[in-house]
Simulated scan of single mutants.
Amino acid sequence: MKLLSSITLTLLATTLSYAQTTMCFKENHNSMATIEATNLNGGECKNKYSIKDMKKNGWIVDDIKITPTTTGTYNFIYILKTKESNSNFAINSTLTNKQLEEKILKRLEEKEIKEKKEKEIKKTLDSKLNGKKIYVNKCQSCHGKEGEISAYNVSKPLKDMSSEDISYAINRYTNEAGYGNGYDIIMRPIAANVRSQEVKDIKAYLDSINKK
């Protein structure tokens, strides 16, 4: 993924011969209307200067990249340059524009990966908690505290069944009269109100408490 077009980078490389250039950014900002008055990170902004501040000090915006995030906020990246020497800012000559871009891109990608992992962890935890609630209320009395009991000696312990096996049994209880050796009268009302995602949640909960 490139933050800036190859044409822009070529122009910036040319510009470096007679203009000072810096790259500033802001992650997860929630309003385009207020970004220009918001202090930016990186480059010569250093979390002390906004775009308005930079313009007052002789900088101009050469390019901007705005990327929407999955949470409804925006990531902003600004390339700024000035043709005049400016004593208020010391340019970091050790980093090229490409290196600055790669550094910011790496940070944004690492943050995106971290947020994705956190969402996956939360999703897994929510699944287990929901599974526990359903299991305790609907299943535990017959199948045991940890799914270890063969209910009425007609089914495998739930802890030893996959979510597909459980779904298959629930489908048969719901649609086949007499399935379950006469215990369908107990199981059918429960099976009719258990959804496929709830089965996965139940299995996630049972797996979590039966780990050795």
Rank of each mutant, 00 (worst) to 15 (best):
I104H: 06
S85Y: 15
S196R: 15
Y152V: 01
I186T: 09
K211D: 13
A177C: 02
A90H: 13
T73Q: 02
A169K: 01
D165F: 07
N97E: 07
T124M: 08
N57M: 07
C142A: 11
A151F: 12
S127T: 08
L11N: 14
D53W: 09
L9F: 07
S87W: 09
E101G: 05
K211G: 01
N75Q: 00
N153I: 09
S127F: 08
Y183T: 07
K145D: 10
T15R: 15
T38M: 04
N210M: 09
I185P: 00
S5N: 15
N39A: 15
E44H: 00
S17V: 11
K138I: 07
S150G: 05
N181Y: 15
L100G: 08
G178Q: 09
R107I: 11
G131V: 13
T69I: 01
E115V: 01
T94L: 05
D207L: 12
L11P: 01
A151E: 01
N30W: 02
S155Y: 01
I121E: 10
L16F: 12
E110P: 00
L40G: 09
I7L: 14
N47T: 11
G58N: 12
I170R: 01
E112A: 10
S162Y: 10
E148W: 15
D126M: 14
I104K: 02
Y135K: 02
S127L: 11
R195Q: 04
T70A: 03
L158G: 11
N39T: 15
N30A: 03
I190R: 02
K81D: 14
